[in-house]
Simulated scan of single mutants.
Amino acid sequence: MIDRIHLETGHGIRSICKVLGLPRSSYYHAATPTANELSDLDIGGRIERIFRHHRRRYGYRRIWRDLAEDGVVCGPARVRRLMAERGLKAIQPRTYVPRTSDGKADKPSPNRLLKAGLPAAPDTAWAGDITFIPTTSGWLYLAVVIDLCSRCIVGWALDDHLRAELVTEAFRQGYHSRRPRPGLIFHSDRGSQYGSRLFRAQLAEAGALQSMSARANPYHNAWTESFIGTLKAEMLQGGCFRDGADARTE
């Protein structure tokens, strides 16, 4: 306010402070940024660059991890505050809406995870699912395989068909990169691709045990459903890819 009056009237700072009943020291103290304010300015700029670089996909937790990897010392609460002050809001996936399994698998396998529970070690239980990916030139289909311990994607396949080869390619990729021991549990819904002879033969060759969700119970495969929802929210942002090459690049 004092600066504005000074610019508009041309009066000196001393005169303005005297009229307002303020000591000049208060003005100069307020005009000089503190060390914390300078630090906020620096970290805030870093946060905004990371946020823009990842195209609004990163929330405060991911940005905090990136800052920590770069040696920037600050807490997640500070990152959240600075993001709020700058109006930086990450893309949020839609609330999970369950969809029923199609139940087309011939002789569906039992849900082995109900007894075994979630794994305590990587590469002992995986889950798979299929989703559609829109492009301007037509639909593509994505099969993913997730490790249920680390929640990492261990395999994926993208193609323009829904044949069993789509899921076998995703599993093959994960198997050759991770080399799980025999006894691996592979969980999915009751889709016909997962119930096909081709895929079941692949599991048998790898020494893996098949597990399937109960009919019309998508919550039994909520890990992949949640990942797919986040993937679409962050990557598509309400739009679509140009073509298959664009989708694979992303």
Rank of each mutant, 00 (worst) to 15 (best):
D3Q: 10
R4E: 14
I5D: 00
L7A: 15
T9S: 15
H11S: 11
I13D: 02
C17Y: 10
L20I: 09
G21P: 01
G21V: 05
L22P: 00
P23E: 10
R24V: 12
S26L: 14
Y27N: 03
Y28K: 04
H29W: 08
H29T: 12
H29F: 08
A31Y: 08
A31R: 14
A35Y: 00
L38G: 08
L38D: 03
D40P: 09
E48I: 01
I50K: 05
F51G: 14
F51P: 09
F51H: 09
F51Y: 13
H54Q: 14
H54V: 06
H54C: 11
R55L: 12
Y58Q: 07
Y58I: 06
G59Y: 00
G59E: 05
Y60N: 12
W64R: 04
W64T: 15
L67I: 09
E69L: 14
V73C: 11
A77I: 06
R78L: 08
R78E: 12
R81T: 10
R81C: 12
L82C: 10
L82P: 03
M83K: 10
G87I: 03
K89L: 12
K89V: 15
K89M: 14
A90N: 12
R94H: 02
T95E: 13
Y96Q: 04
Y96F: 15
K104V: 10
D106N: 09
P108S: 05
L113F: 01
L113V: 04
L114M: 15
A116P: 00
L118A: 13
P119M: 07
P122I: 10
T124H: 02
W126Q: 07
A127Y: 00
D129L: 02
D129E: 04
T131V: 06
I133T: 08
P134I: 06
T135Y: 05
T135F: 02
T136C: 07
T136P: 00
G138I: 00
G138Q: 05
L140E: 03
L140G: 03
Y141G: 05
A143T: 05
V144W: 01
I146W: 03
D147K: 07
L148C: 07
C149S: 03
R151D: 07
V154H: 02
A157N: 08
L158S: 06
D159A: 14
R163M: 06
R163S: 03
A164I: 01
E169K: 11
E169F: 00
A170N: 11
A170C: 07
R172I: 04
G174L: 09
Y175W: 13
Y175E: 12
R178K: 10
R178M: 09
R178C: 12
G183I: 00
G183Y: 00
F186P: 06
S188V: 06
D189K: 00
S192E: 02
G195N: 00
R197A: 13
R197W: 01
R197Q: 09
R200Q: 11
R200P: 01
Q202E: 07
Q202H: 01
E205S: 14
Q210R: 04
S213N: 04
R215H: 08
R215P: 07
A216W: 03
N217C: 15
N221V: 13
A222G: 11
T230E: 08
T230Y: 01
A233W: 06
E234T: 09
G238F: 11
G238Y: 08
C240T: 07
F241R: 01
R242E: 11
D243E: 09
A245T: 10
D246H: 14
R248H: 08
T249F: 13
